[in-house]
Design a protein around this nucleic acid. Structure first.
Length: 268
DNA sequence: CACTCATGTACAC
DNA sequence: TGTACCTGAGTGG
């Protein structure tokens, strides 16, 4: 779920449900100071990378949420929905209830703290105001592997392990290539593809990266049975045949995260 | 039912 | 580099 496109969808969903409405705010679990925004008007929900921010009226405080690995929102229109399990934050307005469980972060920020969080985030391919040059400068000067840089939210904000694996496959780049060994044009193609893939992920609510000409049907192969909520080239396909060249997809661990790639299609 | 693993990040050493 | 966070899906017995 929680790569950047999913957070942008959540921001839109929260905005639809609560934007401009006075809300009831509680923390059934007790681990969030929900009372601070109880009874206020929900101002706006916005995303930057994997971070979600909610503003209120009249209040300068901003709720900052990061789902981490486990966090989820659930929505229901059932009135007086019972609290099940550990709910960090519940918002209710006009019969709509949104429950937040298991976030890595759910905290109130003052404006200067909000600015500080944003200042640590690189450009987000899903934001129209993204400063792509800032990411290019970081990548093209770094000795770190491009696979590491793509997961560094200070470099690019929003892509996670799936988009990383898939964009490197689509651009035929060896994941261990140092950032500074990429040409500016090659990095531009990576950025542009992230913009495309993540926007499509936002629209569809799932991650699909396989080009039509590589669909199994187009390749004269039987339909695949290894999808997990989206259709991809290499993510979690260790040992399975590459959809383009047929050689086995490789996997290893880099910076504590699983990395998937096709050694044949993505050779340096 | 017990156990592993995950689309993420921060912090300890 | 390892561990904590703390949830749910999947797997295997």
């Amino acid at each position: 779920m929680p790569e950047g496109h999913a957070i942008h969808r959540l921001a839109a969903q929260l905005q639809d449900a609560f934007g401009g409405h006075k809300i009831e705010s509680t923390s059934p679990q007790g681990r969030f100071n929900a009372q601070a925004v109880d009874g206020l008007e929900f101002g706006d929900a916005r995303a930057w990378g994997k971070h979600l921010f909610i503003g209120f009226t009249p209040s300068a405080e901003i709720v900052h949420i990061h789902l981490g690995l486990y966090g989820r929102w659930t929505f229901t229109s059932e009135p007086d929905s019972p609290v099940v399990g550990q709910v960090r934050w519940r918002i209710v307005s006009d019969g709509t209830t949104a429950d937040l469980r298991g976030p890595a972060t759910c905290e109130l920020l003052l404006p200067h703290e909000y600015d500080a969080v944003l200042s640590r985030l690189g450009p987000d391919p899903l934001r129209p105001d993204a400063d792509a040059e800032r990411a290019a400068d970081r990548v093209l000067r770094s000795r770190a592997p491009i696979a590491t840089l793509l997961m560094d939210q200070a470099v690019v904000s929003g892509p996670g392990n799936i988009f990383r694996a898939e964009v490197l496959f689509r651009q035929k780049i060896d994941p261990l290539t140092p950032g500074r060994d990429l040409s500016r044009a090659a990095w531009q193609r990576v950025w542009d593809d992230l913009v495309f893939l993540m926007a499509q992920g936002f629209d569809r609510g799932r991650i699909d990266t396989v080009r039509p000409e590589h669909e199994p049907e187009a390749m004269g192969r039987p339909p695949r049975e290894d999808e997990h909520g989206g259709e991809v080239y290499v993510y979690r396909r260790e040992g399975l045949p590459c959809l383009v060249c047929g050689s086995p997809v490789a996997a290893s661990v880099l910076n504590g995260r699983n990395l998937f790639w096709c050694p044949h299609c993505q050779s340096a």
